[in-house]
Design a binder for these strands. Structure first.
Lengths: 224, 224
DNA sequence: GGAATAGTGTCTGTAAGACACTATATG
DNA sequence: CATATAGTGTCTTACAGACACTATTCC
């Protein structure tokens, strides 16, 4: 019978200083021991409810992160991508705010390394191609959905959210249009009374995702 | 070591009499022998270059169809979807014109059964959910891409193509806008001198996909 | 009141849809 | 020339972006 290596890999993305960054970990086993790569691991048929469950488990065990926005990207396969043999990796991408990453970044035994996705070094396996596809998917979906909200943390102001969208899409957005569109998607609610920012100027209203939109994206008819 | 069952499944879609249909085959082995289901099969690590290669092989062996538009849909996995154990299926969807299906439908040993996707019966495994996702994906992508062209055959007129888009999206489209959009995508070229249709009226110009657009979709900025 | 950023009202330009007209085939 | 469908010119409507104005905070 064919022996096929079944794994999951995770593209954990966050936004730091206006740049999209991917989380890499040093591999703790051969092949490529001690080399930076995407967090990943074998599917455990006895304990994982499905591939998504395996992805959540890997994310928790290796990056100490729970319950981010998580979506299946694609499955990569073939005889050449892993030196151990014909392999298959079901890849998920996750979005988290930088605060979450920095909280766990210190605590964990495994040190998370954040790398700008536009300045990637050589990576083992086909991890560069995988990250490329994840970034394309994120940037594309950002044009017509609430996806970028998951990079913004729990509470955020509209100017902050606009800067997130602008960082992803590369270019300035019209303030009036942006706010019309966010309102049209209807996934935001005001955080009562609370205001963001300090400084010698008017503070901005804080918002958060409505509970019913925490798991499911909002979509726009015609993009931003 | 975990034994995980690795398969590919195919959602072969076509448009017949204005209705989107999925191709089903009687299974030739247990489980569910002689029951209608999606064409599928094990990945053969020795011969398949990757999962896409396995999908093309299955499509050729079981449905006798080569070189359709083929795109990965998603991977479905878990302990319950296949009675044989923890399994994983990398699902691809393919689009072909009804002419292609009907040509091979007679020749093959395996009889293809076309079923309206909106009138599906109970199916084995999680094939109903898989088909549902494929249809959603097709209908969604039809809003802003040239995807429906692959359902229209090699040569087609603009009125025919508009009827294809309308069948997928459920609703009438504005003729002027539709033609502006097709022109904007720039993936069509006139088939010289040839005209479609007969009848007591002006015949329509035939078009086909430009060679450089046969593999890659064209996209619209703002949808139809 | 000055400075700085948040938030909104309104005008303008562009793109989509409605409609009507011309074009070209058959009988 | 009647009829039926293909294909286009143009007007109207709706939406996105530009711009300017008001709002609110700290100093």
């Amino acid at each position: 019978m064919n022996q096929i290596i079944c794994t999951v890999d995770l593209v954990l993305l966050t936004l730091k200083e206006g740049a999209l960054q991917v989380a890499l970990l040093k591999r703790d086993k051969e092949p490529f021991k001690d080399v930076l790569a995407l967090p990943g691991g074998f599917i455990h048929a006895e304990e994982d409810a499905d591939a998504r469950g395996a992805a959540l488990r890997v994310l928790k065990e290796k990056a100490h992160i729970t319950a981010p926005y998580l979506e299946q990207l694609a499955t990569f396969s073939g005889p050449a991508r892993d030196p151990r043999g014909w392999s298959l990796s079901i890849v998920y991408y996750a979005l988290v705010s930088i605060d979450i990453v920095e909280q766990v970044g210190h605590s964990g035994r495994d040190q998370i390394r954040l790398v700008d996705v536009d300045k990637l070094m050589q990576l083992p396996f086909d991890h560069q191609a995988i990250i490329g596809m994840a970034v394309d998917r994120l940037r594309n979906k950002s044009q017509y959905s609430s996806l970028p909200c998951y990079l913004a943390g729990e509470n955020f102001t509209l100017p902050q959210l606009q800067r997130v969208y602008e960082a992803l899409m590369g270019g300035e957005l019209n303030k009036v249009s942006f706010r019309r569109k966010m309102s049209e998607m209807g996934m935001l609610e005001e955080v009562d009374g609370r205001f963001g920012l300090a400084g010698a100027h008017r503070p901005a209203q804080l918002y958060r995702l409505r509970p019913e939109h925490r798991e499911h994206l909002s979509l726009l008819e015609r993009g931003l």
